[in-house]
Each structure stands twice: as C-alpha cells, then as structure tokens.
Amino acid sequence: MTQISHNSLSETAQEEKAIGIWKDSFDRLLKNKMAVVSMVVVSIMFFFAIFGPYLTPYDFLAQNLELRSQAPSAQHWLGTDYLGRDVLSRVIYGARTATLVSLLVVLISSVIGVLVGSISGYFGGKLDFFLMWFTDLNMAFPNLVLGVVMAVSLRPPVSRWMESMFLKTQNPVFRQSSLLDLALVVIVIVAVAWSPYARVLRSQVMAVRNYNYVTAARALGLSTFTIVTKYIIPNAIGPVIVQMSAGMGSAMLTESAFSFLGIGINPPIPSWGNMINEGLRQWTSAPYLLAAPAVVLGLMTVSFSFLGDGLNDALNPKQWKG
C-alpha cells in the first residue's frame, strides 16, 4: 500500500507499476487451469451470442407441427420441442438472451455501485451509515422474492408507458413485448443486484482515501469531484472487476430463474430459464428438452463462478487460498 503512494510521486513509475500489477495478475490467472477452461467456455458463449443466430440451421421461431417433440436426430441434433421448433437453435439463441441481459445488468449495477460506494466511502458519516444500512438490507434478503414483487408490479405501468410512447411516436419498437420483457428484467435484476458492488467499492475507497497522494491532492486544492474520480476510483476499482465476473454469472442465474418463473423473458423468445420451464412439462417423455438448456445454463454459471474465483485469486493473492 505504501508502495503505491510512493510511486504516485512520478507518473511514469505509477504507470509501470500499474501495468506490472495487471500483467502479474493475468499470469497468475493463466496458471489456474479451471479459470482458463472457464474463460474458453465463456468466450465460446460470447461467440454464439454474437454470431449464433446466423449459424443455426433453423430459425429459432420456425414451427414444424409435423415434427413435434422429436428425439435428437441427424436433422435436429437436440430434438424438437412441443411446437416442432429446433431445440439446438433455441439453445443457441438463448445464449444471446442470457449474455445481453447479464451484460446490461453488470454494467448498470457497477455504475450504481461505484456511485453509491464512492459517495458512502469518501464522505462517511450519517450518509454512509444510511447508505450501508440500505445496502446490507438489500443484500440480506433473497433477491428472488423482492424481484418477483417488482417484476409483477412494474409490468403494468411500464407497458402502459410503452403504449403511450407508441401512440405518441408511432414507432413500432414500443409495441415489442420482447423489448418490454428485456427492459423489465434488467431493471428488476439491477434493483436487487447492485448492493455487492457498492459494498466492495466502499471498503476500497475507505482504504484509498487515507493514502498520502490523496492528502497531497487535497492539499493542492483539487475539487472533491476530481479527487474522487481521478485519484480514488481508479485505485479502488480492482475488486469491482472481480465482482463483475461473479456478477455476470449470478445475473445470468437470476435472469433464468425469473424466466423460469414466468416473470422474465417470456416465450416465444428463448431464454434457458423459460426453456427449462417448458421442458419440465414433459420431462418424463422428453427429458432432452429439459436437459439441453439445463446443462448449458449450468455450464455457463459454473464457468463464471470458476472464472470469478480465479480472478479473485489473481487480483487478491493474499485472500483465502492461504
């Protein structure tokens, strides 16, 4: 810790050190086999999320009522569902849903977390007490329950607002129910998932704000805004990045849990959660309908948790691995 404040005396030294830390961490990450495997799995999913819909042999919505609930075959590798849609194409499209939702959730929650955490950590006092009380409250209660309430009660007002926007602008975008689902699910997950980011950043900010270079910046008469954005946040952001990787996995998990419950992404747009729910209806006669999305979702969330763990070890080597 003292090293960082020494180095801040000269710009170049600080930059060298910064590159050193990141490269060091990356090397440590590469030594962790599970983390590397997870990185590969996650990259494959990103690839399919971006290009998947152009690669699949069938449209994910195309129904073929003559081929309903078929077992896996050469034409349909993972079989077809109760409407004769190709399960493989739907699972691949599900990657896009999952990635889109979790990326949005992680980005928005980390922005909120950075805001709340830096305000709370830098200013301290009563404001800090109140903000952290609320953050802890948010963390203590199950995401799912509060999320359910929010998803159910926000839907009517948001859909009314979208309808009024449609009438005002005649833009058909506002009539798409998939957009409504997406917006709602992102809002709800952010509302229940921002708190860990704020907690993590706050404790970092509290450590960093007492460093000598921050005192120096204050003595130079820099504005609080400049001090926080230029000197404190860049040095406190590391653990937030770890949290973002773990957060991708848990956002993905929450999205599919909501879709599973029927309050997230609704059919016909495929999400692994709603596919599991549909598969559950005929799990004895066609277990592969259930197994395909379940295995892929499980693989993804497991990969994210191993990746998050690897990043944590790489960036905070002193922690818990002794």
Binding site: A257, G273, P287, L290, L297, G298, S305
Partner: peptide, 25 residues
Amino acid sequence: GGALFFWGIPTFVMAPLLMVLFCLE
C-alpha cells in the same frame, strides 16, 4: 472445486437434472 461447482449450478437446473437421472434413467 466441488463446492464451487455446486455453488455455480442453479437450483432449478440441479433439481430437474437429478430427477431425470435418478427417477428416469
């Protein structure tokens, strides 16, 4: 590793998969 693995798998993925495995297969 096992703990982290099971921590990663959502409940509603684990439940049906175990059901398929132990009750059906």
